[in-house]
Design a protein around this nucleic acid. Structure first.
Length: 596
RNA sequence: GGUCUCGUAGCUCAGCUGGAUAGAGCAACUGCCUUCUAAGCAGUAGGUCUUUGGUUCGAAUCCAAACGGGAUCACCA
């Protein structure tokens, strides 16, 4: 049983025995004791003063004495105002530590029998990934890993937005200005090459609009009448009619983009179990719309467009299909939802999508409920805040977008520079050094983007993101590298530690106990992170654990310890911290080096 | 304008279902490498938790309003 549960139960019994009031153990909450007081757990007595008819301090005192007497785990107590602080026997901490040392799966939840799908990344095929996508990718990957650690069966999917007018824009620009350029001929990565033409389109299009305005045309009209826009729309129509030339070009350019994305995904260490393509799901969406019409939960307006009335749900009417029968954004989502559920009958379907689409997902879920779909209930929009720059919002049109590939490369350069400055690569081969820079760069970047609560909008400060000190990924990685050095040395000395190697240890240094408290708490942290879909909870834990260990490392010597048992225990403690750092960071997609 | 969301140290962020004197990191200042990696550790300074009411033994946390950011309310995706 968990230590907290033991204590809750004891307190429940004590309340009964001392004051004849019955409070269920599950109702008794313990909180961590503040640093300035002795103890690990604190019980607040204020809520019971009325029932008991005594002052908070009296109650605390009486409870404390009872617990010290009757509960073996309780070593001592102190009462400050209405707060009963409980100190736990060192033997108990050691017992718990031995327990987790022997449990290979400590932190891994029991199989839950639940299927959870996580959709993330979901890029457009007309431009390369940027900083915002990185937050999405890291969040999606980490959330999926955390859900696995909670015992769920998880499927990661990527819904690629590969159709629509925006794709046609880059295709058109390529046709006009491309001169047959390819990634091979130009040496430009596929997604960047296509993105280049998307930008070119926008530039040329703007010039046309300005020209028309200069000729006296209204700006709104000019935007619609600009020849390039008309051509793009024409191309979309041809695409939908399966025009061979257009479809061939589309396939070719998309294949370049996919090659580029694939490279980026591998570089940043994210993966997917399955890809969906909107070009393949939007027709299914139309079937769902038809179904809704038949069930009379959707309706047709006189012009032939199809709508759903969600005013009863506190939302508005929403268009599902245009009068000309072509689909809109939500149409394909209706189809994709069904397809997903057929592929993987899920209990929950998580969509990692920015919070600008909050309304969209309310509409999607409400619409599927109207259709009576059993899977509507399981839809969960993991809504995350946008990433801002010190200069403000990222705007592709103003060229303030931070490109993902460039950013990663800059991080790698920084890692190399800092490592070289500190002279930390003695004995590294060129290959090992390169690997280390990548590990550090990705650790810094991922940690920086994941440590903030996903729901919150966040600021990406380039200066801070490349800092490897303080609350950062490399700080945690460094702690792991230092432990690795200790374990290497222990290995060289022929020391192997199992639980019997320190069975005579009875006393703990304060910092040792703090480390154990952190270790013991890990499963609860994994659970909380899973329940909240919040990788930030894991990130904060990793930081706290590393900090607790570094304090220990500073204050307690391992190899100068003359008591062999104590030395063995400290090596074992270090090994466990390394294991938990490795595990928790792996949930975030962060690797930890042996040396740095 | 309707709906949603955020407002904590100079900056970036923690603060779990209400609990003690609100915590970290960065930036500033001071110590600690002849000892297991100083990418570390310890310390100093820094706060009217936007404001005002309410709920209660107790509010950064819950409720309401105001002020200030942001998102959304597209036959864009």
């Amino acid at each position: 049983m968990q230590l907290q549960n033991v204590l809750s139960q004891s307190i429940s019994q004590a309340l009964q025995a001392l004051f004849s009031i019955s409070v269920d153990a599950s109702q008794i909450a313990l909180q961590p004791t503040r640093k300035e007081f002795a103890g690990t757990f604190t019980f607040v007595t204020f809520p019971y003063t009325k029932q008991v008819g005594k002052g908070p301090e009296q109650i605390g005192q009486a409870l404390g004495e009872y617990l010290k007497e009757n509960t073996t785990e309780v070593k001592n107590f102190n009462v400050v105002k209405g707060f009963l602080n409980l100190e736990i026997e060192e033997k108990e901490w050691l017992r718990l530590f031995r327990g987790l040392m022997q449990d290979e799966n400590y932190g891994q939840g029991e199989p839950s029998g639940r299927n959870v799908m996580v959709e993330y990344s979901s890029p457009n095929t007309n431009k390369p990934l940027h900083l915002g996508h990185l937050r999405n990718n890291f969040l999606g990957y980490a959330t999926a890993e955390i859900l696995k650690a909670n015992g769920h069966e998880v499927m990661k999917v990527n819904l690629v937005n590969d159709r629509g007018i925006h794709i046609c824009k880059s295709m058109l620009a390529y046709e006009k200005f491309g001169n047959g350029e390819t990634p091979e001929s130009s040496g430009i990565k596929g997604d960047h090459l296509v993105g280049k033409y998307y930008v070119l389109f926008d530039k040329a299009y703007k010039e046309q609009v300005e020209e028309l305005v200069a000729q006296g045309m209204d700006k709104e009209e000019a935007k619609k009448k600009a020849p390039l826009m008309l051509e793009a729309q024409d191309m979309l129509l041809k695409w939908e009619q399966d025009d061979e030339a257009v479809v061939d070009l589309w396939k070719q350019m998309n294949s370049w983009v996919y090659a580029g994305f694939d490279q980026t995904y591998r570089n940043i260490g994210v993966d997917f179990d399955k890809f969906y393509y909107e070009s393949q799901t939007y027709t299914l969406g139309k079937e769902r719309v038809e179904e809704g019409l038949q069930k009379e939960v959707f309706f047709k307006k006189p012009d032939g467009s199809v709508w759903v009335d969600l005013t009863g749900e506190g939302l508005d009417e929403k268009l599902l299909l245009r009068a000309d029968g072509t689909s809109v954004y939500i149409t394909q989502d209706l189809g994709t939802a069904e397809l997903k559920y057929n592929d993987f009958p899920y209990d929950q379907s998580v969509y990692v999508v920015a919070d600008e689409q909050n309304y969209h997902f309310q509409v999607l879920q409400a619409t599927l409920k109207k259709l009576g779909k059993p899977y509507a209930e399981g839809i969960y929009h993991l809504s995350y805040g946008m990433v801002d720059l010190p200069s403000g919002k990222m705007k592709s049109r103003e060229g303030t977008v931070v490109d993902a590939d460039e950013l990663v490369q800059e991080m790698i350069d920084t890692a190399r520079q800092q490592t070289e400055e500190l002279g930390k690569i003695e004995g590294f081969t060129e290959e090992q050094a390169k690997e280390l820079y990548h590990t550090l760069a990705m650790g810094a970047l991922k940690y920086f983007l994941l440590k903030v609560d996903p729901k919150k909008r966040m600021l990406f400060n380039p200066q801070e993101s490349i800092d490897f000190r303080g609350n950062t990924g490399p700080f945690i990685q460094y702690s792991h590298a230092r432990i690795s050095a200790i374990l290497r040395k222990a290995g060289e000395m022929g020391i192997t530690v199992d639980v019997s190697a320190f069975d005579k240890v009875e006393n703990l240094h304060e910092t040792e106990q703090e480390v154990i408290v952190q270790l013991v708490n890990y499963p609860a942290v994994v659970k909380e992170a899973g329940n909240l879909f919040a990788p930030s909870v894991i990130a904060n834990y990793g930081y706290e654990l590393a900090k607790a260990y570094n304090r220990f490392y500073q204050e307690v010597s391992i190899f100068n310890e003359t008591d062999e048992q104590a030395r063995n225990f400290r090596i074992a403690l270090s090994a466990m911290v390394a294991r938990f750092i490795r595990h928790s960071m792996s949930l975030l997609g962060i690797e930890v080096p042996e040396r740095m």
